[in-house]
């Protein structure tokens, strides 16, 4: 298959990561903490989606909406319980708390959620485009026939919708403008009359909604288990840092760079090295940070 097909696979993988990375980076930029428990938010969203798909009447989108709502509620509940009381302690205590919370939540899911992977039943349609002409350059075919599945379209479509909504939120609403103000300077924002706690809560809810969506999309593609989100947290973290920590737009770019790097390195690495595709993605991350420490989007890195 050609490079076009590999690019499609990369865009799909990048879309999963991008949805989650936006939530992760908003927390970083506005609450000023690296939330290592964020993978568990995805897992909990996936579980909510799984139970909703089995318990609620109606099509799968109903379960997706339930996962998003559930993700938002869980996120604000965990924030209120564990992070809000230590907002003033700085990024390091909050980071350590998030690591501990992640371990505790992951193991609680293992204990109470059962040990077997669960699957959300879906029907997948495949659309083939075999008439696309080949454009070979050396041994690489730039175009050539390709296929898309309904799952691919759903994931990419969801990601595009999320990008639009987040963009409109950040640029056209008072809440979004206040979020950006807090991201720039929290003290100044508070002096200017912004209710910073309300904005933090809004960020937690938004990040939870995005985690719920990413989690249920991953569950549809793979399965629901205690490690659904945890197994992707490094990719999410890397996308956020690569793009410029704290910048949602940078996170989107970072996610697609990582997705494409994973797909293309799997396709073109020597046979004995195909298991190292993640290492290639992280090598790109390191290289970019060496050249431009603030990330692709150039956002100023905060003290965390």
């Amino acid at each position: 298959m050609g490079l076009l097909q590999e690019a499609i696979f990369g865009v799909v993988t990048g879309s999963y990561i991008a949805i989650a990375a936006i939530g992760f980076t908003l927390i970083y930029g506005i609450v000023n903490m690296i939330n290592f428990a964020y993978g568990e938010y995805l897992t909990l969203g996936a579980f909510v989606g799984f139970f909703a798909a089995n318990a609620l009447p109606g099509p799968l989108p109903v379960a997706v909406v339930a996962a998003m709502l559930g993700g938002g509620v869980i996120s604000i509940a965990l924030a209120r319980g564990f992070f809000t009381p230590i907002n003033h302690t700085g990024p390091v205590p909050m980071l350590l708390t998030s690591i501990g919370l992640g371990i505790a939540v992951r193991n609680a899911i293992r204990l109470f959620g059962g040990r077997s992977a669960r699957y959300i039943d879906t029907e997948t349609a495949t659309f083939r485009f075999d008439a696309v002409p080949e454009v070979p350059i050396g041994s690489v075919d730039l175009l050539g026939g390709f296929f898309l599945t309904s799952e691919h379209l759903t994931v990419v479509g969801s990601a595009v919708a999320v990008f639009l909504v987040v963009h409109l939120l950040l640029t056209r609403t008072d809440v979004g403008i206040a979020m950006r103000a807090m991201g720039d300077d929290e003290s100044l924002a508070r002096v200017r009359g912004i209710d910073t706690q309300l904005i933090r809560d809004s960020v937690w809810v938004l990040a939870g909604v995005l985690a719920g969506l990413a989690g249920v999309l991953m569950a549809i593609q793979t399965n629901v288990s205690s490690t659904t989100g945890y197994s992707h947290i490094l990719q999410i973290l890397s996308a956020a840092i690569l793009g410029g920590a704290g910048s949602p737009y940078g996170a989107i770019i970072g996610a697609y760079v990582i997705g494409l790097a994973l797909a293309i390195s799997t396709a073109f690495l020597p046979s004995s090295m195909t298991g190292l595709s993640s290492a290639v993605a992280f090598a790109i991350l390191i290289a970019v940070l060496l050249v431009k420490p603030s990330g692709i989007a150039g956002t100023e890195v905060r003290e965390a």
Binding site: M1, Q5, E6, F9, G10, V12, T13, Y16, M218, Q221, T222, T227, S231, H232, L262, A263, I264, T266, A267, T274, S277
Partner: peptide, 11 residues
């Protein structure tokens, strides 16, 4: 634990 193995299968 990958979310997709399409690239590997394609290869």
């Amino acid at each position: 634990g990958n979310s997709s193995y399409q690239s590997a299968l394609s290869r």
